[in-house]
Amino acid sequence: MNFYAVMAIYKFEMARTRRTLVQSIVAPVISTSLYFIVFGAAIGSRITEVGGVSYGAFIVPGLIMLNLLMHSISNASFGIYFPKFIGTVYEVLSAPVSTVEVVLGYVGAAATKSIILGLIILATATLFIPLRIEHPLIMLLFIFLTSITFSLLGFILGIWADNFEKLSVVPSLIITPLVFLGGSFYSTDMLPPFWQSVTLFNPVLYLVSGLRWSFYEISEVNVLVSLVCITGFMLLCFSVVLYMFRTGYKLRT
């Protein structure tokens, strides 16, 4: 294991976050606060409770998940895409590092940032509404697995993308709709039966549901199903990354 290389990449990526603190941390916190004000206060005043939980508290897991997904993908995709774009990726490609070490560096840093952000969002939420967390370790497990998995997905996206437009396509055109339609801000019980069935095909539903269970023990699907889904997707993403490095897909000519 080239431990020094893993740490070099990890520190380099974390240093980028420090340089862009406003964009990385402050902006998501402000936007999350706006969600609480708009959804929690304005809409929440009309929807008193969902599944025995106040509406403001109900949306907290969804907001955390929204931030985890978006920022995991954007951090990891930018982390590998930018060196490709400016040409500095030659150094990583010519270094004595394995795929696992590269992934540990880039994905590890992206996931760390997302986990920190998720916890900051959680802390921000407590400023607006009283929260209870029934299963804090399960909550941390979901945050950890989601951050790793979607950082892997972002890493794949960063390797695949050959322009900035492609880089933003997946977060804005796929992930955002899935999050909004995946029960982040409502319970699927509120939907007509047909749309309840359709929502079951949305993978984000399983993540939000699992995380929400760790808070309030209420879920749309069984928490074990959620854990199996996220673990399975993580393994799939890792396999794709291994394949990309083994074949040199869009990295080595």
Binding site: Y4, A5, A8, I9, K11, F12, E91
Partner: peptide, 8 residues
Amino acid sequence: VFSRGLFG
């Protein structure tokens, strides 16, 4: 420092 670490 980054380059040195990257090369192990």
